[in-house]
Structures are given as C-alpha cells and as structure tokens.
Simulated assay, not measured.
Amino acid sequence: MVLPSLLVTLLAGSGSAAAAVARPVTPRTSNGTCTTLLQRRAWHTFTDAEKRAYIDAELCLMAKPATLGLNGTKNRFEELQWTHQHQASIVHNVGAFLPYHRLLMWAHEKLLREECGYQGAQPYWDEVRDAGKFSTSDVLDPVTGFGGNGVGAYGCIADGPFVNFTNSLGPGYRIGFEHCIYRFVSDSVSRRAAQSYIDECYQHTTFVDFWPCAEGAPHNGGHGGIGGKMNDPIASPGDPIFYLHHSFLDKVWWDWQELNQSARLMDIGGRNKFSGGFSGGFPWGNGTLPGFPGGNGSLPGAPQDPWRSVPLQDMIPPPGSPEPEGDPGNTTTLSHILRMYGVVPDVTIADVMDTRGPLLCFEYV
C-alpha cells in the first residue's frame, strides 16, 4: 500500500496519459452468432463461492503483466483502465458515453473469462437495493466483497482482497503516481441511485433525452456514493467496484431499450465532443455533482476528499488526446468508432446497441 506521505509527489512531475500508442482504426464485428446468452446477475444473488471466483479472476487480471505497450500500464487490469483514462474527454458527457462503457464492461468480462479462467458472467451491483445505505452493502464486505470504506486522511482501504493493490494511473490523467485504492463512502450521495431517479429517466422516449439523465443521478449516485478513486472521472476504473457499477448503469440503459426495442436498438444521438473539462469531479460545473451544490468540490454528507484536489493540469486532456472518429459532424451516430487500443478489437456504436449479438452475447437477469 502506498504511504499517505507520498501524496506530496502528486504536485511534482510524473508522466501523463498523453503518450498513446498509434494504432490503425479498424472497426469490426464478430462473425459468430449469439446462441447462448451469458446471464448477468446482481452481486447480492451470488453464492460465496461465485463471489470468490469473480474476485480471484479480478486478482488474476491485476497480476497479469501488461502486453500492449500502453503508457504507464503494469498489468492487464490497468490496460483496461488506460483506455478509459486516455479517452475520458470523449466518452463522458457525450452520446458515446453509454455505448463506450457497455463495450468496456464486455471487454472486462471477456478478459476475466479468457485469460483468468472465470466461468461466470459480469455481475452488476443492484444499487437501487442499497441506495442511501452503501456503507452496509455486501459489495463492501471485507470477506466476500470488495473491501470496505477508506480509512485515515487519504482514504486507503484497509481490508478486503484488494487492500495491497497499487494503481499507477490517476488521479486524473496522471501516470506513474503509485497509490492505493481509496474510498470516501457517502450514504447521502448514494441516494441518487434510488429507483425514483431511474424512473425519471425512463420517462424519456429518445436517447438524446435519456442519456444525460442516466449519466446524471443514476451514474453519479454510484461514483459519488463510493467516493475516492470512484469519484475520479478519468481514472475511476482503478477501483474494481467500477465494473459492477457501470454494469448496473448498462442494465438501466438496456431496460430502457427493452421498453421499445423496435425503435431503441437503433436510437443514438447527442454531441460527440464535450467542450467543458474536469475540475476535481465529474464533468458538471465546478466539480460538484448535480443536486449537491458544494462550492469547492465537496459533497454534503461526505468527508472532504483530498484526492479530488489534484492540480488542474492533471484534469485537462493532455496534448495528443484522441478526438471522436466515425461521425460526419458533432452528432454521435451509429458509425461512431469505439476504440479499445488492442484490449479488444475496435467496433462501432452499431455493434454494441444490442446485447444479444452478434458481437455481444449477454442479458441481465
């Protein structure tokens, strides 16, 4: 675990995420046919043995050496995280937000199964069940879950299977600052994951209206409810809870699609480039989350998170950051390219609109 005193080095020089490996864009889909759907289930329905199998596979991914030459990555887990960090400015607050994260969840599931022997499907966190009481969720159980809240001034987790994991990506776009998984759990912020907020999103009949709603309360309820690393909009996949949270959000999108499949399996839109920036939190104004005005990035009901107070330059996309590809203008289309830098093949948004194939092959139960 990283000593808290090392935080001072955050203000000093280190690498950034700017140095990407140039790779040709070759979007493609699977030639196979989806015949057997993986069943994605809620974490709380898993047996202890199923939970252990998933966590062991995650630890395996964290232990496997990086293979793709992505700047600063040490292991396969960080290579997934890097694709999110490097593209943060073009996969948040844009029409590609939900499609990109659906692909990232699938890539994570694929690596667990193909490289670490995991036999199951990607679980999701039923955050509605735990809204307003994240601190008591079985997701944070120190024995059968992901470990609990952070402790001390810097919020390093003190128990659970990932207590000794050292992450080298983040905060923000920073690379090379090795640090613990840190959390500042807030039950009050986690209320944004409640069913009432999701139901508000389901009232929208077009993607361009649904997507910002989903990226609002349901999205920030999970990130802000865990806090710490999860509150870093750029490097948040450094906490493995990220994959349960975004699988839940993907389920919210899929449930909305199922309300009108004939229209919504082809419905996409929204801007493809966000002109704002990140300022110590998710990309809404001054670093606060919607509905929680807090001035300097603090959240009422949550302890002040010193890890959010990173230098501004580490929250700004560095030179060489990617631009959206595949659209004729600034409107997200089905031909928008989702890049994965070799982790899995690049595809288009059209390829991930239906979870039941031909590329993806799963359903939520």
Rank of each mutant, 00 (worst) to 15 (best):
V139N: 00
F134A: 14
G172S: 02
A153Q: 15
V143Q: 14
N149K: 14
G160P: 08
G155S: 08
P161L: 02
G155R: 02
F134V: 14
G150S: 11
F162V: 05
F134P: 02
Y154C: 07
Y173R: 01
P161C: 00
N164G: 11
G145R: 01
G172L: 04
S168C: 08
D159C: 04
G145A: 11
V151R: 13
V143K: 14
F146L: 05
S168G: 11
G148N: 13
V151A: 14
G152M: 06
C156K: 15
G152F: 04
V139Y: 09
S168F: 08
F134G: 00
F165H: 07
N164I: 06
S137A: 13
N164C: 05
Y154T: 15
N149P: 14
P171K: 12
G150A: 07
S135A: 06
R174C: 03
P142H: 06
S137G: 01
V163M: 09
G155K: 01
P142E: 08
R174G: 08
I157P: 03
G160Y: 02
G170Q: 01
G172Y: 03
I175M: 09
N164W: 11
A158Y: 04
F146T: 00
P171T: 11
I157Y: 13
F165D: 14
V151G: 13
G145V: 02
T136V: 15
G160A: 10
G172P: 00
P142Q: 02
T136W: 06
P142C: 13
I157K: 07
V163N: 08
G147H: 03
F162K: 11
P142V: 02
G160Q: 03
V151P: 04
S135L: 10
G155D: 04
F134R: 10
G147R: 00
G152Y: 09
